[in-house]
Computed example of a mutant assay.
Amino acid sequence: MSDFRPLSADYSVAPQISIEDVAAAKAQGFALIVNNRPDGEEPAAPQGDAIAHAAAAEGLAYAAIPVGHAGFSHPQLDALDKLLVAATGPVLAYCRSGTRSTHLWALARARAGDDIDAICDAAAKAGYDLSGLRPMMDALAGDK
């Protein structure tokens, strides 16, 4: 059962997806699946290659930007920015709970100059609290 949570018109997040969720993503119009979960983090969960294979079978693009316990980096934000620019349709990103995928998106959008309150509101509507991330978002927005 899919649990896709929209953060914007073209970006949604989800907790760990199953192989079956890939077909549901296709049916809901997603064009790209972004895996933010490092392989091996949960051996029982479908690993990146399995999701990539299922995505290819459905005609969906797939990319991995693993976010481990070390946190976020500018190269990860850069990678997401490049994927979003190149995406041919809506994007579905996932990790264990959807939190890292939400945080990565929020940091990238803050760095791009989007309204931080609006970013936080969108995340809250999807069930994610960005209050702890606010100082980093403010710092990234100030880098502009």
Rank of each mutant, 00 (worst) to 15 (best):
112 A>T: 09
38 P>T: 14
54 A>L: 12
68 G>R: 11
66 P>R: 13
127 G>L: 00
26 K>V: 02
128 Y>H: 07
117 D>Y: 00
114 D>P: 03
81 D>V: 06
43 P>N: 15
88 T>R: 08
21 D>V: 08
43 P>L: 15
60 L>W: 08
50 A>Q: 10
34 V>F: 01
74 H>F: 11
68 G>D: 14
9 A>T: 12
117 D>P: 01
68 G>P: 12
136 M>V: 11
56 A>M: 08
79 A>S: 11
79 A>P: 04
139 A>E: 13
55 A>D: 12
46 P>M: 13
11 Y>C: 08
126 A>F: 11
71 G>D: 09
113 G>P: 00
29 G>D: 02
6 P>N: 09
102 T>G: 08
54 A>S: 13
32 L>G: 03
11 Y>Q: 05
99 T>L: 14
105 W>I: 03
37 R>T: 10
66 P>M: 13
58 E>T: 01
92 L>K: 05
32 L>D: 01
127 G>H: 01
13 V>M: 06
138 D>C: 05
26 K>W: 01
119 I>Q: 00
30 F>C: 04
89 G>C: 07
57 A>L: 06
120 C>D: 07
82 K>P: 01
9 A>Q: 11
128 Y>M: 06
15 P>N: 01
113 G>D: 02
135 P>D: 12
31 A>H: 08
113 G>E: 01
54 A>W: 12
20 E>V: 03
66 P>D: 14
114 D>I: 01
133 L>G: 01
57 A>K: 03
73 S>M: 02
113 G>S: 02
68 G>A: 13
6 P>G: 11
109 R>F: 02
51 I>N: 08
131 S>Q: 10
71 G>A: 12
108 A>V: 12
117 D>G: 05
138 D>L: 13
111 R>K: 15
50 A>N: 02
112 A>I: 06
57 A>C: 00
24 A>Y: 00
83 L>W: 02
50 A>G: 04
6 P>C: 11
79 A>K: 06
135 P>I: 12
61 A>E: 09
32 L>V: 06
28 Q>D: 07
84 L>F: 04
15 P>M: 03
115 D>Q: 05
14 A>G: 00
26 K>E: 00
68 G>V: 12
